[in-house]
């Protein structure tokens, strides 16, 4: 049983005169077995929240707290947070030239599990995880994210989710840029992880899913939906809230109409 607790989180970007407050007091608790969805207009600070939890160097936490089972996450280095059981599937995964996917995965898994996986099991484990995500084995020899298509990068993020087995996972727009088949494959991958982790006796992981669309929520049912607006959560509800947001947009929270139809370049009713 794990709990990620975010209390009154304030985060800025930029330095000196340029400092801008992006998160303006976020409160959220994600516990094992729960799936939380966060929806909100472009630029409202959803990725900022995700990156701040992961420890991205660009963001400065100026107030509030983030704890994982009581441990101060903000006091941890980026890698310590991952080893503590947090995982962020990024909206824009980073290319690392010259580092092969297989070497990267093995190094990451070794770090997170605290020991090198046994070679025989490891090959099998990676191959199976890749097969489920319908990723060609050739990806293992390519450089991390280099030249990957948008959808391939997202599959690679979920591959890491499956192998690193976090206690709390944050998925930042993993569904954006996926075609219908890829969305199904990736969603099934996520669900499979959520249920097998539970079977392993670890208890189901907790999940924070950032998305613009309800289509992924048809595969991954959220227990809670939160509306993110101007740096904070302004409303929370059940999964029906997502449908309402998709139909109405964020106008009633004060957003201009364009913010609604401009999401990811596609009008909401088209998805």
């Amino acid at each position: 049983m794990s709990t990620l607790e975010i209390r009154d989180l304030h985060v800025t970007v930029g330095e000196g005169e340029e400092t801008t407050e992006i998160l303006k007091g976020v409160d959220l608790t994600v516990s094992s077995g729960q799936t939380h969805a966060i929806m909100g207009p472009n630029g409202s600070g959803k990725s900022t929240l995700a990156y701040s939890i992961a420890g991205h160097p660009k963001y400065t936490v100026v107030g509030g707290s983030v704890t994982l089972d009581g441990a101060d996450v903000l006091a941890m280095t980026v890698d310590q947070r991952a080893r503590a059981g947090l995982f962020l599937a990024m909206q824009y995964p980073v290319e690392v030239p010259g580092v092969s996917v297989s070497n990267f995965l093995r190094t990451a898994v070794t770090a997170v599990r605290g020991e090198a996986p046994k070679v025989r099991h490891w090959v099998k484990e990676v191959n199976e995880a890749m097969a489920v995500l319908e990723m060609d084995r050739a990806f293992a020899e390519r450089s991390v994210n280099e030249g990957f298509s948008g959808g391939e990068k997202k599959r690679h993020e979920i591959l890491q989710l499956e192998l690193l087995k976090p206690r709390i996972a944050i998925l930042d727009e993993t569904d954006s840029g996926l075609d219908v088949d890829a969305l199904r494959v990736v969603s099934e991958g996520v669900n499979r992880y959520m249920s097998t982790a539970a079977l392993d006796g670890e208890g189901a992981p907790g999940m924070l899913l950032i998305t613009h669309y309800t289509r992924i929520l048809r595969y991954i049912r959220p227990d809670f939906v939160h509306v993110f607006f101007d740096g904070r959560i302004v409303e929370s509800g059940g999964s029906d809230l997502a449908d309402r947001l998709e139909a109405e947009g964020y106008a009633r929270f004060g957003a201009a109409e364009s913010a609604h139809s401009g999401v990811d370049g596609a009008p909401a009713h088209a998805v």
Binding site: A82, V99, F104
Partner: peptide, 19 residues
């Protein structure tokens, strides 16, 4: 690049080595 690698649990020195 370092952030990405570290966010997967890889300690700084090792991330640097990989890069």
């Amino acid at each position: 690049q370092l952030f990405y690698l570290q966010s997967r649990g890889i300690p700084f020195e090792e991330a640097q080595r990989l890069v």
